[in-house]
């Protein structure tokens, strides 16, 4: 069974996958994320999430670390298997 839920990136667990659906937050950070390949529709996998440190996600073949403040503004459609 595949369960789908919309969550903040900060609420994703390590090892989970999902698709980005929206990015809130200031234009500066948003543009940076976009340039790094993170836009609505992007598949991501959470490699590391251990509060209060940054979250590390895999996007394509790159790895990006994101502080919790901005990660909280990224909405993801979580795919639980």
């Amino acid at each position: 069974m595949v369960m789908i839920m919309y969550v903040h990136l900060t609420h994703m667990n390590e090892g989970e996958e999902g698709v980005v659906v929206d990015i809130h937050g200031g234009i500066g950070a948003r543009q940076k994320l976009i340039g790094m390949g993170i836009t609505p529709g992007t598949r991501i996998r959470v490699l590391k999430s251990s509060p209060p440190g940054p979250i590390i996600i895999a996007v394509g073949s790159s790895r990006i670390a994101i502080g919790r403040g901005i990660a909280d503004k990224i909405i993801v459609r979580r795919e639980l298997r």
């Binding site: 937050g25 790094m36 790159s62 790895r63 990006i64 670390a65 502080g67 901005i70």
Partner: peptide, 8 residues
């Protein structure tokens, strides 16, 4: 401080 985003 500005948001933290860095490629590894």
């Amino acid at each position: 401080e500005s948001p933290f985003i860095i490629e590894l």
